[in-house]
Design a protein around this nucleic acid. Sequence first.
DNA 1: GCTTTAAGTCAACTTCTGTTGACTTTCAAG
DNA 2: CTTGAAAGTCAACAGAAGTTGACTTAAAGC
Lengths: 197, 197
Amino acid sequence: MRRKSVVRGEGATRREILTAAIERFALASYDDVGLRDIATDVDVDVAYVHRSFGSKEQLFREVLDTQRVDIGLSAIGEKALAGRLAEILFERAHARTSHEHDPLTILVRSLASPTAGRLVGERLQDEYIEPIQQKIGERTPLRASMTMSLLIGFSILRHHLQLPAVTEIDPAQAEALIASAIDEIMKFGKVENPDQA
Amino acid sequence: MRRKSVVRGEGATRREILTAAIERFALASYDDVGLRDIATDVDVDVAYVHRSFGSKEQLFREVLDTQRVDIGLSAIGEKALAGRLAEILFERAHARTSHEHDPLTILVRSLASPTAGRLVGERLQDEYIEPIQQKIGERTPLRASMTMSLLIGFSILRHHLQLPAVTEIDPAQAEALIASAIDEIMKFGKVENPDQA
DNA sequence: GCTTTAAGTCAACTTCTGTTGACTTTCAAG
DNA sequence: CTTGAAAGTCAACAGAAGTTGACTTAAAGC
């Protein structure tokens, strides 16, 4: 008597579905991606997409797992942190096969969704803010959050809204400027009163 | 022979609906706010909400009009720009009646929606980035965009995701740090090679 | 008092969503 | 050849959404 699992499908088709889902979730938000869209991409029935992962939310969760990025903080010093973060943000922007996206894209796309938002928040906290906090010294929550603000805001302007001012920028130049902005934020903890009125 | 307008309702109830809509759109995204929610708030029929504005999109447009903010750039110098922007972001955070929100909130909430996203992008460009560009000197698109990245990212972390690290910060302190971060970004144009490897 | 116009309601339609039960197909093991 | 589980399909449901046509109510204008 085998236990009949609710989740079916462990083979090649399942992987194809996951790949198609990654693509879709990088281009539209959780709520705007329909299981039927994904089903069409892979040319299977909607029901199969659903049952291969148990639920849409579970599928999304697995997509997020796919996008994990190791900041590699343990290996680098505080000085190199800014550069590393900027690098992550632009890592795939330099790639020639341009339908690749930076690891923040999928997270950022689905920020607003009530269903997916909670998952996104957790990932952001665990995968970025937490590690950054551990790396820097004083006023850490605020500084780590400001750093993330810059990264997330930039990703939004660039990929979501595709504002010309941002998309037309030379990536290498933008990367350098992001890095030095983060560097400045890192210095905040070390000054008592930055500029204050 | 009066022309029968598709849009009905010019009176007090219409204004109530608009107020309720503002509240709703500040708390949830365009797609997640239902006309039925708003109708319930004001205690009228859904159909009346719809017809008072012609369409949901038109209602949202009027809500955005409501949120217009004059940065007042003409009156201030480049030096005061950073402080002014930070002030806008925190203007209503200090208020005691706390169900008020900063003018970016509604824009940011509906970034992801395909329907509302276009509107949001236009507003952001016209109302913030454009004015900021006009105020600063060199490398203007990039610097203006970086500034907006910080503002938007912070708004998202604070209001959307409500990450503890951001919500627990003393507003006055955060405002000061945002301002000095923007100040640093403003200096980018004036240095040839910031730090570069 | 009748009429017109706006204010507001009611019920329904259409479209789209994730989900589910029941079915068929495939294919390897015994 | 038979069995049995996995792979995959089909049709349908239930819920929610924006929208629309037809209706009623209410208050002025003449």
